[in-house]
């Protein structure tokens, strides 16, 4: 059967991610889309340890480690340096977690996008600081239990709604912005390849479920990723050259069904679930409106 995604593998086996890690699939698909002429910059995150201990590497392309807050600055520098060397045909990719993007790296990201470098910024969103033991980030959704939002007797789960960095990037006027997730690799790869056609900054937020931090069994990673789209918890869209396209889920499921698939939400009562459902509906309406403008 002709494979529906490129056969080339630039991520090797033997890496040290947890069983069923969604973040590894995000990297695997992005590199399938971009090919060998690619340089990746990774800040402190799970992906900084997934390649394993020295002297091992798991990517067959150059990978640079950068300080937690500096992904945007590092891809600016890499781009300019490669251009001076005449290597303008190399793709420069920042590959950072949600903590490194929505929180500590936001100003660096915004600056790089504003300066207009020809770079990719890929945010792999596992909705928490997973590498350091599951702390909440700005990208953690309302309702989730993390080690810094322990439910306990005070029902101290995360009370704030998810900060969606892709929406911020659209508001900033970044020429190419998209959301994707690992359950739909064909869509993800097509978006990365579309982004490549834009000569300028591009931002893609990839939802990458994490069995270790979302507390679900590892075999469910793809299922959970699919349900995030079907429940509209994580809408898929593409914003390119001012045109916005939203993907309508084929088999809608309720937010309730989605939260029941993960133990991080298991404490939520009906009222709390409806607060989350209302936010999801509100955001969906906003995205629908964007499509008509």
């Amino acid at each position: 059967m002709p494979t529906s995604i490129p056969e080339q593998e630039l991520m090797e086996p033997g890496h040290t991610a947890c069983q069923g890690c969604g973040a590894t699939l995000a990297m695997r698909y992005v590199l399938k889309a971009l090919g060998k002429k690619t340089v990746v910059s990774v800040p402190a995150s799970c992906w900084a340890v997934i390649p394993g201990a020295m002297p091992n590497r798991t990517l067959d392309i150059p990978m640079v480690y950068t300080p937690f807050a500096a992904t945007g600055a590092s891809i600016s520098g890499l781009r300019e340096a490669l251009d001076i060397r005449g290597d303008s045909d190399y793709n420069v990719v920042g590959f950072a977690g949600d903590g490194g993007t929505a929180d500590i790296g936001l100003q660096s990201l915004s600056g790089a996008m504003e300066r207009g470098h020809n770079v990719f910024y890929i945010m792999y969103d596992n909705e928490g600081y997973m590498n350091t033991g599951v702390q909440r980030s700005g990208s953690t959704p309302y309702g989730a239990e993390t080690t810094t939002t322990p439910v306990g007797l005070d029902r101290n789960f995360k009370k704030q709604q998810k900060k969606v960095v892709a929406d911020i990037m659209m508001a900033q006027g970044v020429p190419y912005v998209a959301t994707a997730t690992i359950a739909y690799p064909e869509d993800l790869i097509r978006k990365v390849q579309n982004a490549k056609k834009t000569n300028g900054p591009k931002f893609i937020q990839i939802l990458a479920p994490c069995p270790t931090g979302w507390y679900y069994p590892p075999e469910k990673t793809i299922e959970v990723s699919r349900m995030a789209v079907q429940s509209r918890m994580f809408p898929l869209y593409e914003y390119s050259m001012g045109t916005f396209r939203l993907t309508r889920p084929s088999k809608p499921v309720s937010v309730k069904e989605y939260v029941q698939s993960q133990k991080r939400f298991s404490h939520m009562d009906e009222d709390e679930i409806s607060i989350l459902q209302e936010e999801v509906d509100r955001r969906w309406e906003g995205l629908l409106e964007k499509e008509t403008h």
Binding site: E12, R57, T58
Partner: peptide
């Protein structure tokens, strides 16, 4: 880092 994670 020069060796492949295949060693692992």
């Amino acid at each position: 880092a020069e060796t492949s994670s295949r060693a692992n």
